[in-house]
Amino acid sequence: MPKTVTFEDPTGEGKPIELDVVNVPKNLDDYEARMDHIPTADPYYVDLGMLYRLAALEQVRRNHFDDTPLHLALRGHMGTGKDHDLEQFAAVLEMPHYRIPLTGEVRDITLIGSVKLHGDGKGGTESRWEDGDITRALRGPALINLSELNAAGAETLFALHGLLDRHQAVELPTGEMVRLRDDVRVFGTLNPTDLRDYAGTQTLNKAFADRWIIWEKDFPSEEELTAMLTRRHSGLRSEYAVLIAKLAAEVNASFTSTDSRTRVETPMSLRTVLDRIPAGLRMFGFAKDPLRRTWEEMVLPHIDPYDRDHYETVWAAVARTGPTKAPF
């Protein structure tokens, strides 16, 4: 029998979802390389409901839409964990994961491929086709994450149209049609363009956007951040975890505010909350106020000078001073 995994709804509302893991055929030419692309499960990952939603969509795709493309894009601000969610979904399903950033510098030949010259062993050269990033991923089971969708140039988006609509194929210059296999899933991530100017991003072309289901990925709540900190840093005193989570929640609430006069312009990402601040607390645990010292050394340097007053306003309103006990 095929191996299965079960996804539980963190809210307790939905029924458990059972899915077969992905089988990578051993006769693939790139079997070993593809197996190396299966991510390792993050033992500290906290599913806030996204894995369950992804599993629900996957169940629908397998049972009812096996011949219809249902591509999903996660839209959210920097540091909300969009790419990590997709990576961990691939890890649970034991699915090769290919994250392909679509920055403005990426060309269609990088994604699709090109003809290159190689030595023929006789002192001459010969032309050979070399797959690009997407074409290579499409030749076997894969979860493809087209990261930063709205940073892609027009020619890149045009090259992807046929893959993402009912045609479900990429036509190579060689004449080969690389079709979307039934064990390949195409996802994307993008930043919002309505509130902030993420360098190089743009509003998605409507025809291209229509090829996607788009879900919003919000910043975690204070309670969710506390759970993440507690799981990842089990030795962290609870008063620190609660205060860090409250600071982050307040900063991010200000970031998403529509009042441009008072809002902060840089959010507190999960990297700051889960990595930089705990690292700082271990470094400055000897200080009179370890959290304040960490705030000054590990948080404020990431903030633009004009935005520091806003951060300090949040600190004064939420913390004033940090806990006096050792952090760990």
Rank of each mutant, 00 (worst) to 15 (best):
M1D: 13
M1Q: 14
P2H: 11
V5N: 11
P16G: 09
P16E: 07
I17L: 10
V21Q: 12
V24L: 07
K26W: 01
D29I: 05
D29S: 10
M35E: 09
I38A: 03
P43Q: 10
Y44K: 07
Y45C: 07
M50P: 08
M50L: 14
Y52D: 09
L57Q: 07
Q59D: 08
V60F: 14
P69T: 10
H71Q: 03
G76L: 10
M78E: 13
A90K: 02
L93H: 09
M95E: 05
Y98Q: 00
I100T: 04
P101E: 04
P101T: 01
G104P: 00
D108E: 08
T110P: 00
S114C: 01
H118Q: 12
D120R: 08
G121C: 10
G121V: 04
K122V: 07
W129T: 06
E130Q: 04
E130V: 03
G132E: 00
R139C: 02
R139G: 04
I144T: 02
N150P: 03
G153C: 01
T156E: 04
T156G: 00
T156V: 02
G162A: 00
R166V: 05
E171G: 06
G175L: 11
R185Y: 10
T193F: 09
A199Q: 12
T203C: 00
P220V: 12
E223L: 14
E223C: 06
L229D: 10
G235H: 09
R237T: 14
A241Y: 06
A241F: 09
I244M: 11
A245T: 09
L247R: 07
E250P: 06
V251Y: 11
F255V: 08
T256V: 15
T258F: 15
S260P: 08
T262K: 15
M268T: 07
S269R: 10
T272M: 14
R276M: 12
R282H: 13
R282D: 13
F284I: 01
A287F: 03
K288G: 12
T294F: 12
D304V: 05
R308N: 08
D309S: 14
Y311P: 09
Y311K: 04
E312Q: 12
V314Y: 13
P323Q: 12
